[in-house]
Simulated scan of single mutants.
Amino acid sequence: MLPSETVDSYEVGVKTALMDRTLFLDGSAFFYQYDNFQTSVQQGTQIITTNAGKAESYGFEGQARWVPSDVLSLYASYGYNHSRFKAGIREGNRFRLSPDHSTALGAILSVPAGPGRVAFSPSITWQSAVFFDDDNDRADLQQPPAALVADNIQDEKQKGYALVNARLGYEAPGGGWRVEAFVENAFDKAYIKDAGNTGDGLGMPTFIAGEPRFYGVSASFRFGGAK
């Protein structure tokens, strides 16, 4: 039986409104310290839980929103997350699916159109590189007997990438109904959202592609009257 995983967590934050409540700023800093961090390792074709020892994570998250008028709203966010193993054979490795940097930028432009409003909402998100396993696809951690077939190439990793999305819609007075066209991953950026998995121990890792460009039209209705 593994010893219990424990974590000491600390967080401090602030929220404020400036410029006659047209500029809103939020931010928080955090620090997590783990003992007996539990993670998964592959032994042959089996996935088992193991004790990776000490680990820590610290960083910052911030958001800003500027609303100069009832027509325009701009927003931005940024996150820094330094998550690393501090002991054992994985010392220095990053946590899985944990980008060091991530950010988002967007706008909402809403103008009167007849009795309702037309809104256009473009946005862009970006994140830095991620690994899909706590072993960070290191060759020295993927040799027999841990794996049936040695993995000597560090390819189960996604480099930093950006995605662009947009929505254009019309909303009836009081928000009773809304129809909009949308596009996600507008520039059809190719990326992977998972890699490795059980087949990795057999020398046949799987690579799961992220969603390609996707577009369509949606409609929504509110029943019971506007509130």
Rank of each mutant, 00 (worst) to 15 (best):
F37A: 14
S98N: 01
A29H: 06
S28T: 03
R117V: 09
Q143Y: 00
L23S: 08
Q43H: 14
F37K: 14
P99G: 06
T103F: 01
L105M: 02
A139F: 02
F120M: 13
W126E: 06
L109N: 08
V111E: 11
A146Y: 11
Q143I: 08
I124Y: 01
S121A: 12
Q46T: 15
K86Y: 04
R90A: 00
G88I: 01
V41T: 12
W126M: 02
S57H: 05
Y32G: 11
A150T: 05
D134L: 04
A119W: 04
R84P: 00
L109V: 15
F60H: 09
E56P: 10
D137Q: 03
K159W: 10
G88N: 00
A119T: 15
W66C: 06
Q158I: 05
R90P: 03
V118T: 09
S102M: 08
V111F: 07
P112S: 08
L25V: 02
P68I: 07
Q38G: 13
I48L: 12
I48N: 11
A104T: 13
H101N: 11
F30I: 09
V41Q: 12
K159D: 14
S57F: 01
L23Q: 03
T39N: 07
D26Y: 02
R90I: 00
R117Y: 08
G53R: 02
S102H: 00
G59T: 04
V67Y: 01
V149I: 14
